[in-house]
Design a protein around this nucleic acid. Structure first.
Length: 885
RNA sequence: GCCGAAGUGGUGAAAUUGGUAUACACGCUACCUUGAGGUGGUAGUGGCGAAAGCCGUGUGGGUUCGAGUCCCACCUUCGGCACCA
């Protein structure tokens, strides 16, 4: 074998071998256990970024490990090819989104191949292909038939200058990103999917996903947001007619403390009140300015104006004024809320600001009084600081409060009061208990070109007519170039003009396209049968699904994963697939960060410098002194770690990394630098270290091979140094098996192999048994590393004398005989502090272990003359001797 | 604002079930090696201390024989918030 590690040659050889043998092409084989390993497919933005490399390396390590376990492993790849960036690129360069996208796919595919992933490329798909999105359209029509898809108005960001709808991302500080115009909220008709129909099941089935990260399940549960409360009405009269203002509350126990109601700016009551009230009309207009993002709405200053309309309290009959509040959302609940300033923080601040009455109706519970020392709330609100954290804790504590100032409800607990009040409202026909969801139906219409056309035809006579299945797909013309002034499809008469499928008269085709989340909600199923032109899915899906391991960014923890779960359940209800959930196990990978360097001149713009152009100055202990730009030697400031981005100029191009060090080094660094779920901080030194390790590994194997390979031999009587190394080798195998197979902590798996190789390097090899032990240790190391650095291991496995390729090897079980130990080192503590170590025979009893510990000279020093109170033994590990004083 | 995480040496991190804090690697220091180096090697490397030892896991409390790990409060950073994907 070569004396030097030449990654370029090694990687080409391995990849040529895999290609020649079609090593990663898989077919359904019911006789074999399957494993479906899926990474979230990339958006073809131009070139791979480090996040992709990390994601797909994690997937590849698991894929190759499962293959070594003997399973039939599917790892597919495709392209989430529709979306906004293609339109932005078109605006910037005048290139049609289709061409831009296909060019990007070709380039990125080349990059993925150079990383040596064990992908079955025969199943590649792109969501912008009519063969794929035909089935988006087909399933949309099925949903329409079942009433899951429906039409209603929705709020969008409207740029009045470009006269176009903007994505949230395109609204910066309430203004259009291209025009700078103030953005308005505008209501337009859109299609929705009734995901709320599945809310109960989507929540309940989280229980069936024990192998999902706890945090993701919690986030999804909170997002779905089930709350049980009371929906009830405040009656009022409007122009002589009886009307009702409906609200929902989870705190019906505080209903006697209502001092006003607040409605959203878009609420019909507000619209009506504004007719003869110019000030209110102006305020409503003001509320309609700005973005539709919830984060913006939640952080803006709470403002309101009275409508002049009073409604009647359903229980007391007292008049209650109605205000318009900018913090009330039309899209959530009834678009109106009851306000109880004494017991809701937001209501309090609003009432405080506008001098509205505050009425306390819950007393502090006895427990709370005990905790706080007094009834601190008292009756005089003027003396109370509502920013005080104790007040928040008190309010949140429903358990201990009792109703006061509430007439016949006085003295009731939360549950009693809610039941009694709900019953009374029900008796009056003004409300009842109800379940409410935070989850909203999924708006899927986008006023954009580069997406899947919605298969609807608008006819003046017949209304909105679905495109017949025979006419699918509705093909998106691929030669449009968006210019920022709206959807170019509107100008394409060859697309828009059509005949009504019902009456045959001229009609107009819908030009809105589907949300790209639709494309990504079922691609995992299509990978099982990408070549089926006649059906969305077929029997092959039953073999491969569910996905055994899904890997993707934590940023997808809610939306993509929730939409996919919903879509899967809809497909199941249509009889297309089986099983409750599409993704059995989920790994949410952390982001890839790099340091941000910049200079901020006294006047003018910040300049960002790529970390590659910056040199770090250190003191002689390695502590950091500062950073200077390599080109001029002058200092630059550090902005800390941030996700790799163009705007901060802190990206590292995977391509140059692969060219400089090779795919294996890139993969090794990515897997070694931190565990997959955590953020990964980029480090050029770390990459160099990974490269150095591979060179060392190569040298170690080459040295061994050049001294001659050894055959398998009897290890039963070895000198202790060799026995120790053999034990370490098998311990390493056990640890790597657990780390890759169960824990998915690739960093610690690599560290343990490094330790093994450090021991191998230190071993004096001057006998045949020593060479045999070394051969075994090297084989374990190479096989254990092969999922992570497959190219170099392909080569080294051959050099170690194997006919078969390492990808076709079987993962061995650790040898129990090798793992056996005759004595153990026990840690001895006195009063919990480490005071010594003793060696005890394996299998010693607790009493024996303690006597060994007590016999230790240093331990005696610490316990001498003191009363022995307690002896705690953790078998095989630790003894803690507790003494008085 | 709401929901979810994270914080350990000079740095990335390890410590899996409450049981040896800092494995592995980077960096740094000293020495050796090569004509040269993004070379290879040896030794050292949490702080204080002569030593015994003491102190150390964002901050402040608590539980325990024992806390990085559990509980309470807080600080900072990051992810998501429904039209970025």
């Amino acid at each position: 074998m070569d004396q030097d590690y030449l990654p370029e040659k090694v990687e080409k050889d391995a990849q040529d071998y895999w290609d020649k043998h079609q090593a990663f092409k898989v077919t359904e084989d019911p006789a074999r256990e399957k494993f479906y390993c899926l990474s979230m497919f990339p958006y073809p933005s131009g070139k791979l970024h480090m996040g992709h490399v990390r994601n797909y390396t994690i997937g590849d390590v698991i894929t190759r490990y499962q293959r070594l376990q003997g399973r039939n492993v599917l790892q597919p790849m495709g392209w989430d090819a529709f979306g906004l960036p293609a339109e932005n690129a078109a605006m910037a360069n005048g290139v049609p989104p289709a061409k831009w996208t296909y060019d990007n796919i070709a380039y990125m595919k080349k990059q993925l191949r150079s990383l040596g992933f064990a992908i079955d490329w025969g199943r590649e798909l792109a969501t912008c292909q009519p063969e794929y999105y035909k089935w988006n359209q087909w399933l949309f029509l099925r949903m329409l038939e079942k009433g899951i898809a429906y039409k209603k108005t929705g709020v969008v960001n409207w740029d009045p200058v470009d006269r176009t709808v903007l994505a949230n991302e395109q609204v910066i500080d309430g203004r259009g990103w291209r025009t700078g115009a103030l953005i308005e909220k505008r209501e337009i008709p859109m299609y929705y999917l009734a995901i709320t129909r599945y809310a109960e099941e989507l929540l309940a089935d989280l229980e069936q996903l024990p192998e999902w990260p706890e945090r993701v399940r919690t986030m999804q549960a909170n997002w779905i947001g089930k709350s049980v409360g009371v929906r009830f009405a405040f009656p009022y009269q409007l122009e002589g007619k009886d009307e009702k203002l409906w609200v929902f509350t989870t705190r019906a126990d505080t209903i006697m403390g209502v001092t006003f109601c607040a409605v959203a700016a878009e609420h019909p009551l507000a619209t009506h009140a504004a007719k003869n009230n110019p000030e209110l009309a102006a305020f409503i207009e003001e509320c309609k300015a700005g973005s539709v993002m919830e984060a913006d709405l939640a952080t803006m200053e709470k403002k309101g104006l009275p409508t002049g309309i009073n409604v009647t309290h359903p229980l007391t009959g007292e008049p209650v004024p109605v205000w318009v509040g900018n913090y009330v959302l039309m899209g959530y609940g009834e678009g109106a809320v009851m306000a109880v300033p004494a017991h809701d923080e937001r209501d309090f601040h609003f009432a405080d600001h506008y001098k509205l009455p505050i009425k306390q109706v819950i007393t502090n519970g006895i427990e709370i009084q005990r905790k706080r020392g007094s009834d601190f709330l008292g009756s005089d609100y003027a003396h109370y600081d509502f920013n005080d954290k104790h007040w928040k804790a008190w309010y949140a504590d429903k358990e201990n409060g009792l109703c006061i100032n509430s007439g016949k409800f006085d003295g009731m607990t939360y549950n009693e009061a809610v039941d009694a009040i709900a019953a009374e409202l029900k008796a009056k026909g003004l409300g009842k208990k109800q379940t409410m969801w935070r989850l909203r139906d999924w708006g899927i219409s986008r006023q954009r070109y580069w997406g899947c056309p919605i298969p609807i035809i608008h006819c003046d006579r017949c209304g909105d007519v679905p495109v017949p299945d025979d006419n699918l797909p509705v093909v998106l013309p691929e030669d449009c170039v968006p210019d920022g002034t709206g959807n170019p499809l509107n100008k394409r008469t060859d697309f828009v003009d059509c005949v009504c499928p019902k009456c045959g008269q001229p009609a107009r085709r819908e030009t809105d396209t589907l949300d790209t989340f639709v494309d990504s909600s079922w691609y995992y199923a299509r990978y099982c049968c990408p070549d089926n032109g006649a059906a969305m899915v077929d029997n092959r899906v039953k073999y491969w699904m569910p996905v055994d391991q899904y890997i993707g960014g934590i940023e997808h923890a809610i939306l993509h994963l929730l939409y996919s779960r919903f879509w899967w359940k809809v497909m199941r209800d249509l009889g297309l697939v089986r099983g409750p959930e599409p993704f059995k196990r989920l790994l949410t990978q952390g982001m890839v960060l790099n340091e941000i360097f910049f200079r901020k001149p006294a006047s003018g713009r910040i300049t960002y410098f790529n970390p590659a152009e910056v040199e770090i100055r250190t003191d002689d202990k390695g502590g950091r002194l500062g950073a200077v730009l390599k080109s001029d030697g002058l200092p630059v400031e550090s902005g800390g770690m941030g996700t790799m981005s163009k705007s901060k100029n802190n990206g590292v191009d995977p391509q140059s990394l692969i060219e400089q060090y090779g795919a294996d080094t890139s993969r090794l660094f990515m897997m070694f630098a931190s565990p997959p779920e955590m953020t990964l901080e980029w480090s050029d030194e770390g990459v160099a270290g990974a490269s150095r390790f591979l060179r060392r590994l190569w040298k170690l194997v080459a040295e061994h091979v050049n001294q001659g390979l050894t055959a398998k031999r009897d290890f039963s009587s070895l000198p202790s140094a060799l026995k120790d190394l053999r034990r370490q080798a098998h311990q390493t195998l056990a640890k790597v098996t657990d780390d890759i197979g169960r824990r998915r902590t690739f960093n610690t798996a690599i560290a343990s192999v490094m330790e093994l190789l450090n021991s191998v390097a230190k071993l004096d090899v001057h006998s045949t048994p020593a060479r045999a032990v070394r051969q075994e240790a090297l084989e374990i190391a190479v096989l254990a590393l092969s999922p992570i650095v497959p190219h170099v291991c392909h080569s080294l496995w051959r050099s170690l004398g194997h006919e078969e390729a390492v990808i076709d090897a079987r993962w061995p079980k650790p040898d129990d005989a090798a793992l056996k130990q005759e004595s153990l080192e026990i840690v001895v503590q006195v009063n919990g502090k480490l005071r010594g170590r003793v060696t005890v025979p394996a299998g010693a009893s607790d009493e024996e272990t303690v006597s060994y510990a007590l016999a230790d000279a240093n331990i005696q020093r610490f316990i001498q003359g003191k009363e022995l109170k307690k002896k705690i033994v953790v078998p095989g590990k630790l003894v803690n001797i507790v003494v008085a004083g």
